[in-house]
Nucleic acid binder design. Structure first.
Length: 757
DNA sequence: CTCATTAGATTTTTT
DNA sequence: ATCTAATGAG
């Protein structure tokens, strides 16, 4: 069989598994996506399933698109009856099809994180809750967390203080969303789960329909997504076969609710009999792979996997110890330029970092040296304010909810300020209706100038709605942009070129949406098409919220790729520069001690992901000190570096190393391990002075102190260090010291503290 | 109502 | 260092 020819035995085993539940443990670079798509193709080719019986769920739109594209290429047939999409997109589709049964208005709208936050803030303000003591973001997180665990406000038992506040806000938020027809991301899934739970017939219908459910990146699923899959697959009845692909070692999203434990739960609950491990790596050479394996082997609770490769040893992992972040960045740029001279493309090089703040210095030096680069994870197209404004107008046409109204009632500015909005909000609250309703019903009797302008706004929206009723999507978007006044407004704004370009790009996006979905360009945007769950406009608005990553890819340009380790997941590059392997940065320290160990394991997985991005060259670097948040911090080698075996590495002699060698011969060792230990512990003294680091001429340096230490002060005498504040900072570090004359906070760069013992 | 200044915070992020 | 959100003057 043609499909299977190029697969290795394990991959082939996975593809040819019987129609039963299965878990595929797919290591980095082991051909995971390929197995998933080939499995589907194989099922179809061997008449195990019709396309309509397949449900393939991914995490990101990118993955969904890739899967569809590969399937189309493999099969060469129409796959439109197959459901391939993200959890949220598929949940949305189900809810549109069964809005009434789910208790939702037909025109319900999805709100994104920022819409959700602004709604929560407003609810808190209206309820007179002090937002200083109760962080709206924390309340938002708590609400989403509750939803992830299937808990509605009414499911939470009464509590005290902050929790009770949150519970109240949650209840109000739920009520508001229901009244306004708004659904947040978690609600898409939860409403689906509720819908199927309440309708056994419907549940059975879908479980019978989707004979094969395939889940990608299973290690990233949260509790709610797990339940959602369970609802669609009736695990006890074995109507559908659930095929999950994942890698516990690459689970790096626990902070947003991902549960690696879902993998073990799946095996138990579904009594999975087929577990296939894909351990042959097709990406990296063996020095890199062995180094990554060694690091990840320090983790507890692994399902157990060891990647191997038949590729040669390749280059050892290069280690670069820089004096500061500038030297680190410069050395990277220099190496990229030298590689470029020997024929490498810029786009084969990636620079990875733990947090976005680290990119600045690298960008700076790339720019200075005229090296083109591309940053991943910036502001996405549909997150641009001007685009969000237009989308809010479009939503008002379909479903006049508070969130959209609030956003654009004075955008462009039309003299409706806080006071007027507050007045409207008061009326709305009194009669228990939404802002729009309050506006529509109570405007005539008012002589207030602000309210009169609000009436004009309502008139504008209603005119637009009438005008757009029969227009095709592209024209609707264009009309709204022009007649809302947004175009005029933004053509006078600060970045008018970008703003207006984005507005016209939005019109093109609407046209593209019609093309992709085979919608006739004359078709009215506001009518539900036969055979579809929603109108073109509904679809377009939903896509804007759910698929905000659909930004014009500039992949064609030859540019160095800059991104966080998180966003590098799933990608690969010939050459990877992994930066900032420093204690306090990578691993990033955990806040509370409770799950500090688990957090450390996740950081280690993060490092594993980063290392396994590299095909041929991996260079890891760290600095003695780095500028962070406008503050100079003394850093030091990450403890993770000691987990990389020396046999897989090669120390690059840095400028800083060279300096150490001349100023302090004791510090320089060719053995990397001993060298890290020495340089981070020793008093910096001469070599740092020679290198020109500020703050190092002081006698006492913050990194030499810890709480409990006995210190001597010229004036206060001897005392004990209680705690250190900003301990890593060179300029702002201070210590609380208990002297016999009392407790003092001393700035370490100023106070001359002498350490005793 | 709008614009300007200032305090406060800043791991990681998709949907 | 730099961005955002929240106050206060014009």
């Amino acid at each position: 069989m043609n499909l299977l020819e190029s697969l290795n035995p394990k991959q082939r085993e996975a593809v040819e598994l019987p129609a039963e539940h299965a878990l595929i443990l797919a290591g980095a670079g082991s051909g995971k996506t390929r197995v998933l798509t080939t499995r589907i193709a194989w099922l179809l080719a061997n008449s195990k399933a019709y396309p309509s019986q397949i449900l393939a769920v991914t995490f990101t739109n990118k993955a969904a698109r890739e899967m569809k594209a590969r399937l189309e290429a493999m099969l060469g047939t129409d796959i439109s009856s197959m459901w391939v999409g993200t959890f949220h997109a598929i949940a949305h589709r189900l809810l549109r099809a069964h809005a009434v049964e789910a208790g939702l208005p037909k025109a319900f709208q999805i709100i994104d994180q920022s819409d959700q936050l602004s709604l929560i803030k407003r609810i808190m303000k209206e309820a007179g809750i002090n937002t200083d003591e109760n962080d709206p973001k924390a309340v938002q997180a708590a609400i989403n967390h509750s939803k992830e665990h299937g808990l509605r406000a009414s499911d939470l038992s009464a509590g005290f203080g902050k929790f009770e506040t949150m519970r109240g806000v949650y209840a109000a938020y739920e009520g508001r969303c229901r009244r306004e027809g708004l659904v947040d991301f978690a609600e898409l899934l939860l409403a689906c789960v509720d819908l199927l739970e309440k309708n056994p017939l419907l549940r059975e219908h879908y479980a019978n329909r989707f004979k094969f459910i395939l889940v990608d990146e299973f290690q990233d699923t949260n509790a709610l997504q797990y339940r959602w899959i369970k609802m669609l697959s009736l695990p006890t009845k074995h109507t559908s076969a659930v095929f999950c692909v994942g890698d516990d070692d690459q689970s790096i999203y626990a902070f947003r609710g991902a549960r690696v434990g879902n993998m073990a739960d799946f095996v138990n609950e579904y009594q999975v009999r087929h577990i296939v491990k894909l351990e042959q790596n097709y990406r990296s050479t063996s020095h890199i792979l062995n180094a990554a394996n060694a690091v990840i082997s320090h983790n507890k609770d692994r399902m157990g996997k060891n990647l191997w490769t038949s590729a040669g040893k390749g280059d050892p992992v290069a280690l670069y110890h820089a004096g500061d972040d500038r030297e680190e960045a410069l050395s990277i740029v220099q190496e990229i330029m030298s590689r470029r001279r020997s024929g490498t493309r810029y786009s084969d090089c990636a620079v990875l970092y733990r947090n976005n703040a680290q990119s600045r210095i690298i960008e700076q030096l790339l720019t200075v040296n005229a090296v083109p680069y591309r940053i991943y994870g910036g502001l996405r197209f549909f997150d641009c304010p001007e685009v969000k404004d237009v989308m809010a107008y479009l939503r008002l046409l379909v479903n006049p909810d508070d969130v959209s109204l609030q956003r654009v009632i004075n955008q462009p500015p039309r003299g409706i300020g806080q006071t007027t909005v507050a007045r409207i909000a008061n009326r709305a609250q009194e009669s228990g209706v939404g802002l729009w309703q309050a506006l529509v019903t109570g405007l005539a009797e008012s002589s207030d100038a602000g309210l009169a302008r609000a009436a004009d706004f309502v008139h504008l929206i209603e005119t637009l709605r009438k005008e757009c009723e029969t227009l095709p999507l592209e024209k609707v978007v264009d009309t709204v942009i022009n007649e809302s006044g947004l175009k005029d407004y933004y053509s006078r704004a600060q970045d008018k070129d970008i703003r207006t370009e984005n507005l016209s790009e939005l019109v093109s996006a609407a046209a593209a949406f019609c093309q992709e979905n085979d919608i006739d360009s004359n078709e009215s945007a506001m009518r539900v098409l036969p055979g579809s769950e929603m109108s073109p406009l509904d679809g377009f608005i939903a896509q804007a919220v759910l698929e905000s990553d659909s930004r014009g890819d500039t992949q064609t340009a030859d540019a160095v790729q800059l991104m966080t380790v998180h966003s590098s997941k799933g990608l690969e590059f010939d050459t990877v520069f992994l930066t900032g392997l420093e204690e306090g940065l990578f691993p990033h320290p955990a806040k509370d001690n409770e799950d500090a160990l688990q957090a450390l394991d996740e950081e280690r997985r993060l490092l594993y992901v980063a290392m396994t991005r590299a095909r041929k060259h991996l260079r890891i670097s760290w600095c003695e000190q780095r500028r962070l948040y406008g503050d100079l911090r003394r850093t030091g080698a990450s403890s993770f570096l000691q987990e990389i075996p020396e046999t897989e590495t090669q120390r690059i002699r840095s400028r800083y190393d060279a300096l150490c060698a001349v100023t302090n011969s004791e510090t320089w060792r060719y053995s990397p391990r001993s060298s890290w230990q020495n340089t981070s512990r020793q008093t910096p003294a001469m070599r740092d002075v020679a290198f020109g680091f500020p703050g190092t001429t002081k006698e006492a340096n913050p990194w030499n102190l810890s709480s409990g230490d006995k210190v001597k002060h010229r004036k206060f005498g001897t005392g004990t260090v209680i705690k250190l504040v900003n301990a890593q900072s060179i300029n702002r570090a201070s210590a609380w010291v208990q002297f016999s004359c009392g407790r003092k906070e001393l700035l370490l760069s100023v106070a001359k503290l002498e350490k005793m013992d």
